[in-house]
């Protein structure tokens, strides 16, 4: 935990609002550009010999003679193993494979400013300056189902909070506002599921896939590929929620 004075040292180029009394700091936290991460993951996958079938919706997955049949608009794909990591679309695909995925949808709205000179050397979960030198202000938590619209009300409260912390941002302009849906499990932790009825079927849902990308790309992928024990992943099965209910 940091005092206000210590915080001021972290942000020498910008004033803190009078309501700021202190902050929390973890040297392990950092900022990843999610768009570049996504591009890098896709490139890494292709470089490793993978093929991406873009723009192909999977309508359903069947089990057929120990193999999985993925029904696409453009045809059928067979696979010995299948990982369902389709965000909010995962539930429908996973259910027939014996995996139940409890989650709700949550809308998050983000406000993005014009490019400004470097003023925020450290990212926080609510406000950070990107490599492109815009400032991203997030994020709301709203229960509105599938609606990905943006509201002026959210922009107003995000802007007000940003100015409360950093009053010098008052005259910086917002150039874009966007929203997305988060997949939120009952305890916010990810669900990693392995189908016991249909070996070879896996499901993975979480928020956020950006934060957990390093684990997904290494530890989890290795275990799905059959290296290492599933035991330590077991505790992230959705069955943990049944136990609590009982």
């Amino acid at each position: 935990m940091l005092s206000r004075r210590e915080l001021e040292h972290l942000y020498p180029g910008i004033r803190l609002g009078k309501d700021v009394t202190g902050g929390a700091f973890s040297a392990l936290d950092g900022h990843v550009n999610p768009l570049r991460l996504l591009m890098a993951l896709q490139q890494g996958f292709v470089d490793a010999g993978g093929t991406v079938h873009r723009g192909r919706r999977v309508d359903g997955i069947e089990v057929c003679g120990g193999q999985f049949r993925l029904h696409l608009k453009t045809g059928v794909v067979h696979a010995a193993r299948v990982v369902i990591a389709a965000g909010e679309a995962s539930r429908v695909l996973a259910e027939p494979l014996g995996m139940t995925l409890p989650f709700t949808l949550q809308r998050g709205q983000i406000l993005v400013t014009e490019r400004v000179g470097p003023v925020l050397p450290y990212p926080s979960d609510r406000i950070r300056q990107t490599a492109g030198s815009t400032i991203m202000i997030g994020g709301t938590k709203e229960n509105v189902g599938r609606d990905t619209g943006t509201t002026a009300g959210a922009a107003a409260s995000l802007a007000a909070r940003a100015i409360r912390v950093f009053p010098d941002l008052a005259r910086v302009s917002a150039v874009r506002q966007w929203s997305g849906r988060r997949v939120i499990t009952p305890d916010i932790a990810p669900i990693y599921e392995r189908s016991s009825r249909f070996p070879g079927a896996y499901a993975c849902i979480c928020h956020s896939g950006v934060t957990l990308a390093a684990y997904h790309a290494r530890g989890l992928a290795k275990r799905i590929a059959g290296y290492g024990s599933w035991d330590d992943v077991q505790q992230f099965s959705a069955r943990r929620f049944n136990v609590q209910a009982a």
């Binding site: 406000l111 400013t113 014009e114 943006t150 002026a152 922009a155 107003a156 995000l158 802007a159 007000a160 940003a162 100015i163 941002l169 008052a170 005259r171 910086v172 302009s173 917002a174 150039v175 874009r176 506002q177 966007w178």
Partner: peptide, 13 residues
């Protein structure tokens, strides 16, 4: 996406 034209954070706030 909105805003259709840039708008200052203080105007939003």
């Amino acid at each position: 996406r909105p805003p259709l034209k840039p708008v200052r954070l203080c105007d939003l706030a």
